[in-house]
Design a binder for these strands. Structure first.
Lengths: 149, 149
DNA sequence: GAACTTATGATACTTAGTATCAGTTGTTCA
DNA sequence: TGAACAACTGATACTAAGTATCATAAGTTC
């Protein structure tokens, strides 16, 4: 699990106030193991009196602070997950957790690659394209072992 | 430009009717050079009396037929573009056009990689993950040469 | 603790996309 | 040909995801 303190520090460092609502959202975000939607997050936070707009606003803020990224699943774009930068910076992780994924088209299972296949390619791509490359988003699609029968 | 005839053949082969509305959508899709939204397409087709629902339906059908893919841009998921399979199958293209992209975070410019960096990795990933891999979606993010000053 | 700024929740609104449905258009087969 | 049927259509109403507005509340600064 990612350290919530690290994220609240980022919020304060950038000059934003750390309110109770934001603290709550950050806590939930840190506990998330899988990509989640704003609605799912709101469903859990509204019991604590946190408004829908605030949840959307806070997730957007965390995205702008590079804490979260919005990710592309085949069914739509409304999912958020912790950015690779956040997970890497977290003291709770020693290995490099990356978010390259394989999604099973049959059962929807999502696995994460243990090794980033792009690592060796980025320099070459940068040279060829002239871009300064800052990151990437990679999803593989296929059929998992269980479904492939 | 992709051959509209090839796409209309796919529609007919799969047992769907080739109506005037579908023909119009296919023609527009073939002319598209960049990812487009359903609303953009509708804006151009409504003059010809084609309804909004029909445009959405037809784009969805073309997606199901693997003619189009919905793509992930940072601002959202609502864009469509021709699938790699369609472009490769088109007689107008001899080289391998792939849709791995680099997107400039500054000006929004989109470039396409001329070589798929995943080509060499897919077998290894399949072996390690146990998935039968059917495809992937790769976006790189960074700053293009023009903006990087 | 007053003055100010930022953030909040409620609400209304926008945008993207889907469901429904009566009417229209292709297709098939006699 | 044309009747019968299924597929498709546009209009419309709806849902879901997200944004804008605004009066109120809560931090912050001095």
């Amino acid at each position: 699990m990612v350290d919530a303190l690290h994220l609240t520090e980022i919020i304060k460092q950038k000059g934003f106030r750390l309110t109770i609502a934001r603290q709550n959202v950050v806590d939930m975000v840190c506990k998330s193991l899988y990509p989640f939607t704003a609605e799912e997050m709101y469903a859990q936070l509204k019991e604590q009196g946190i408004g829908r707009a605030t949840v959307f606003r806070t997730l957007k803020l965390l995205q702008e602070l590079d804490v979260l990224v919005r990710v592309h699943l085949e069914e739509g774009c409304q999912h958020y997950q912790l950015s690779a930068a956040t997970i890497n910076a977290s003291h709770c992780h020693t290995e490099d957790h990356h978010h390259d994924r394989i999604i099973c088209r049959h059962c929807g299972e999502i696995s994460y690659l243990d090794e980033c296949p792009m690592k060796t390619n980025v320099n070459e791509i940068a040279k060829r394209s002239g871009y300064r490359i800052q990151g990437h988003h990679l999803d593989l699609y296929g059929v998992c072992r269980g479904c492939d029968k």
